[in-house]
Protein backbone atom coordinates (compact mmCIF):
# COMPACT_ATOMS: atom_id res chain seq x y z
CA UNK A 1 0.00 0.00 0.00
CA UNK A 2 2.85 2.40 0.84
CA UNK A 3 4.41 1.55 -2.54
CA UNK A 4 1.22 2.45 -4.36
CA UNK A 5 0.86 5.82 -2.58
CA UNK A 6 4.52 6.71 -3.21
CA UNK A 7 4.25 5.78 -6.87
CA UNK A 8 1.13 7.88 -7.19
CA UNK A 9 2.89 10.90 -5.65
CA UNK A 10 5.82 10.44 -8.05
CA UNK A 11 3.44 10.32 -11.02
CA UNK A 12 1.88 13.59 -9.85
CA UNK A 13 5.34 15.21 -9.51
CA UNK A 14 6.40 14.03 -12.97
CA UNK A 15 3.17 15.39 -14.49
CA UNK A 16 3.91 18.75 -12.86
CA UNK A 17 7.50 18.70 -14.16
CA UNK A 18 6.45 17.87 -17.71
CA UNK A 19 3.92 20.68 -17.78
CA UNK A 20 6.35 23.16 -16.21
CA UNK A 21 3.53 24.66 -14.13
CA UNK A 22 4.29 24.64 -10.42
CA UNK A 23 0.93 24.86 -8.76
CA UNK A 24 -1.47 22.71 -6.82
CA UNK A 25 -4.00 22.29 -9.63
CA UNK A 26 -1.57 20.63 -12.04
CA UNK A 27 -0.34 18.35 -9.28
CA UNK A 28 -3.90 17.30 -8.44
CA UNK A 29 -4.66 16.51 -12.09
CA UNK A 30 -1.47 14.44 -12.31
CA UNK A 31 -2.34 12.67 -9.07
CA UNK A 32 -5.80 11.74 -10.36
CA UNK A 33 -4.37 10.45 -13.63
CA UNK A 34 -1.82 8.40 -11.70
CA UNK A 35 -4.62 6.99 -9.57
CA UNK A 36 -6.47 5.86 -12.71
CA UNK A 37 -3.30 4.16 -14.00
CA UNK A 38 -2.66 2.38 -10.71
CA UNK A 39 -6.28 1.27 -10.59
CA UNK A 40 -5.97 -0.15 -14.11
CA UNK A 41 -2.73 -1.99 -13.26
CA UNK A 42 -3.83 -3.08 -9.77
CA UNK A 43 -3.33 -6.81 -10.33
CA UNK A 44 0.43 -6.35 -10.77
CA UNK A 45 0.87 -4.79 -7.31
CA UNK A 46 1.17 -6.73 -4.08
CA UNK A 47 -1.85 -6.06 -1.88
CA UNK A 48 -5.16 -4.41 -2.67
CA UNK A 49 -5.75 -1.10 -4.42
CA UNK A 50 -5.36 1.64 -1.80
CA UNK A 51 -8.37 3.61 -2.97
CA UNK A 52 -10.60 0.94 -1.40
CA UNK A 53 -9.10 1.71 2.00
CA UNK A 54 -9.59 5.46 1.59
CA UNK A 55 -13.20 4.85 0.55
CA UNK A 56 -13.80 2.74 3.67
CA UNK A 57 -12.28 5.50 5.86
CA UNK A 58 -14.69 8.01 4.31
CA UNK A 59 -17.57 5.61 4.92
CA UNK A 60 -16.57 5.24 8.59
CA UNK A 61 -16.44 9.01 9.07
CA UNK A 62 -19.87 9.45 7.46
CA UNK A 63 -21.40 6.76 9.65
CA UNK A 64 -19.84 8.38 12.70
CA UNK A 65 -21.19 11.85 11.90
CA UNK A 66 -24.70 10.52 11.35
CA UNK A 67 -24.59 8.68 14.69
CA UNK A 68 -23.28 11.81 16.46
CA UNK A 69 -26.17 13.96 15.25
CA UNK A 70 -28.67 11.23 16.14
CA UNK A 71 -27.25 10.80 19.63
CA UNK A 72 -27.31 14.52 20.38
CA UNK A 73 -30.96 14.67 19.37
CA UNK A 74 -31.73 11.68 21.61
CA UNK A 75 -29.99 13.24 24.61
CA UNK A 76 -31.70 16.61 24.07
CA UNK A 77 -35.03 14.81 23.80
CA UNK A 78 -34.43 13.07 27.12
CA UNK A 79 -33.38 16.29 28.85
CA UNK A 80 -36.23 18.48 27.68
CA UNK A 81 -38.90 15.93 28.56
CA UNK A 82 -41.08 17.62 31.22
CA UNK A 83 -41.01 14.63 33.55
CA UNK A 84 -37.73 12.78 33.77
CA UNK A 85 -38.20 9.02 33.81
CA UNK A 86 -35.01 7.27 32.79
CA UNK A 87 -33.54 4.03 34.06
CA UNK A 88 -29.77 4.23 33.67
CA UNK A 89 -27.61 1.16 34.13
CA UNK A 90 -24.36 -0.59 33.35
CA UNK A 91 -24.09 -3.68 31.18
CA UNK A 92 -21.40 -5.83 29.57
CA UNK A 93 -20.60 -6.04 25.89
CA UNK A 94 -18.13 -8.31 24.16
CA UNK A 95 -15.99 -7.13 21.30
CA UNK A 96 -14.06 -9.11 18.76
CA UNK A 97 -11.47 -6.41 18.13
CA UNK A 98 -7.97 -7.25 19.32
CA UNK A 99 -5.28 -4.59 18.90
CA UNK A 100 -5.04 -1.41 20.96
CA UNK A 101 -5.74 1.03 18.15
CA UNK A 102 -8.93 -0.74 17.11
CA UNK A 103 -10.25 -0.72 20.66
CA UNK A 104 -9.36 2.97 21.08
CA UNK A 105 -11.26 3.85 17.90
CA UNK A 106 -14.26 1.79 18.95
CA UNK A 107 -14.48 3.34 22.43
CA UNK A 108 -14.05 6.85 21.09
CA UNK A 109 -16.87 6.29 18.66
CA UNK A 110 -19.16 4.54 21.11
CA UNK A 111 -18.75 7.50 23.49
CA UNK A 112 -20.50 9.67 20.92
CA UNK A 113 -23.35 7.36 19.93
CA UNK A 114 -26.93 7.35 21.24
CA UNK A 115 -27.15 6.90 24.99
CA UNK A 116 -23.92 5.04 25.63
CA UNK A 117 -20.64 5.82 27.38
CA UNK A 118 -17.83 3.36 27.95
CA UNK A 119 -17.00 3.03 31.65
CA UNK A 120 -14.27 0.43 31.81
CA UNK A 121 -12.40 -1.86 29.43
CA UNK A 122 -10.86 -5.26 30.04
CA UNK A 123 -8.77 -5.63 26.89
CA UNK A 124 -7.52 -9.16 27.51
CA UNK A 125 -11.00 -10.65 27.75
CA UNK A 126 -12.34 -8.23 25.14
CA UNK A 127 -15.14 -6.97 27.38
CA UNK A 128 -16.43 -3.41 27.62
CA UNK A 129 -18.65 -2.09 30.40
CA UNK A 130 -21.08 0.42 29.01
CA UNK A 131 -23.23 2.91 30.88
CA UNK A 132 -26.51 3.46 29.10
CA UNK A 133 -28.87 6.34 29.67
CA UNK A 134 -31.90 4.09 29.48
CA UNK A 135 -31.14 0.39 29.45
CA UNK A 136 -34.49 -0.91 28.27
CA UNK A 137 -34.78 1.64 25.49
CA UNK A 138 -31.26 1.73 24.12
CA UNK A 139 -29.70 -1.70 24.59
CA UNK A 140 -30.77 -3.03 21.21
CA UNK A 141 -29.65 0.06 19.32
CA UNK A 142 -26.30 0.16 21.15
CA UNK A 143 -25.54 -3.45 20.23
CA UNK A 144 -26.53 -2.74 16.64
CA UNK A 145 -24.33 0.37 16.32
CA UNK A 146 -21.44 -1.49 17.96
CA UNK A 147 -21.66 -4.21 15.30
CA UNK A 148 -21.79 -1.58 12.55
CA UNK A 149 -18.72 0.23 13.88
CA UNK A 150 -16.83 -3.03 14.39
CA UNK A 151 -17.31 -4.04 10.78
CA UNK A 152 -16.30 -0.61 9.52
CA UNK A 153 -13.20 -0.51 11.72
CA UNK A 154 -12.12 -4.01 10.65
CA UNK A 155 -12.48 -2.93 7.04
CA UNK A 156 -10.24 0.07 7.70
CA UNK A 157 -7.57 -1.52 9.87
CA UNK A 158 -7.05 -4.92 8.25
Amino acid sequence: MTLQILLNLVIGMVWMLLHDEWNMLTFTIGYLIGMIFIFALRRFFPGRFYGIKIWSIIKLLLLFNIELVKSSLVVIGQITRPKLNIQPGIFKLETKLKSDWEIIMLTNMLALTPGSAVLEIAPKEGIMYIHAMDVAEFKQSIVRTKDLFEEAIIEVMR
Binding site: Q87, P88, G89, I90, F91, L119, E120, Y129
Partner: peptide, 10 residues
Amino acid sequence: LSDTSVKDEL
Protein backbone atom coordinates in the same frame (compact mmCIF):
# COMPACT_ATOMS: atom_id res chain seq x y z
CA LEU B 1 -25.27 5.51 40.80
CA SER B 2 -28.63 7.21 41.13
CA ASP B 3 -31.53 5.39 42.78
CA THR B 4 -33.40 4.91 39.52
CA SER B 5 -30.60 2.75 38.08
CA VAL B 6 -31.72 -0.75 37.24
CA LYS B 7 -28.56 -2.67 36.47
CA ASP B 8 -24.92 -2.76 37.53
CA GLU B 9 -22.82 -5.55 36.03
CA LEU B 10 -19.51 -3.89 36.79
